[in-house]
Simulated scan of single mutants.
Amino acid sequence: MKGGWTYKDKDYAISPDVFGMVDMGSVKKLKDAGKGQDYVTYMHNQLVLMVAEGNPKHIKGITDLGRPDLQVMLPNPVTEGIMKFYAKKVLENNSLWEKLSAGKECQACNGAPNVYFSSVHHREIPAGIKAGKVDVGIVWATEYKNALKEGLKVGVVTMPEKDSMKNEVNYIAGNIPGTPHEKAAKAYLKFLGSKAGQAAYASHGFIEASRDELKVRQVQ
Rank of each mutant, 00 (worst) to 15 (best):
W5A: 09
W5G: 13
W5F: 15
T6I: 15
Y7C: 08
K8M: 13
K8V: 12
D9S: 15
P16N: 06
P16L: 02
D17Q: 11
V18A: 07
V18Y: 00
D23R: 05
K28P: 00
L30P: 11
D32E: 15
A33V: 02
G34T: 05
K35D: 08
K35F: 10
Y39D: 08
T41R: 12
T41I: 15
T41C: 11
Y42D: 02
M43F: 05
H44I: 03
Q46N: 13
V48A: 08
V48E: 03
V48P: 10
V51R: 02
K57G: 02
I59H: 03
K60D: 08
I62H: 00
I62R: 00
T63R: 13
T63D: 12
D64W: 14
D64Q: 07
L65Q: 04
L65Y: 08
R67H: 08
P68T: 04
P68I: 00
L70F: 14
L70H: 12
L70N: 11
Q71W: 12
M73H: 03
M73P: 00
V78G: 07
V78T: 14
T79M: 09
E80H: 08
M83K: 12
A87F: 06
K88V: 00
K89Q: 14
V90M: 04
E92V: 13
E92A: 10
E92W: 07
N93Q: 14
N94I: 10
L96A: 09
W97Y: 08
K99M: 08
K99S: 09
G103V: 03
G103C: 06
K104Y: 12
K104Q: 10
C106S: 11
Q107C: 11
A108W: 03
C109M: 06
C109V: 03
P113Q: 14
Y116M: 05
S118W: 09
S119I: 10
S119A: 14
V120A: 13
H121M: 12
H121D: 14
H121T: 12
H122R: 12
P126C: 05
A127M: 11
K130N: 09
A131W: 06
K133P: 02
D135N: 09
V136Q: 03
V139Y: 03
Y144K: 05
K145M: 12
L148F: 01
K149N: 14
K149W: 03
K149E: 14
K149F: 07
G151S: 09
L152W: 07
K153P: 09
K153G: 06
V154I: 09
G155N: 04
G155A: 05
V156T: 03
V157H: 01
T158D: 11
T158M: 07
M159N: 04
P160D: 01
P160V: 05
N170S: 11
I172Y: 01
G174E: 02
N175V: 05
T179H: 11
H181Y: 05
A184I: 11
A185F: 01
A187P: 01
A187R: 13
Y188S: 07
Y188C: 10
K190C: 07
A196S: 09
G197W: 02
G197S: 08
Q198T: 02
Q198A: 05
Q198I: 00
A200S: 13
A200H: 08
A200E: 08
A200V: 01
A202T: 13
A202K: 15
S203T: 05
H204I: 00
G205Q: 06
G205M: 05
F206A: 15
I207Y: 07
S210I: 01
K215R: 06
R217A: 04
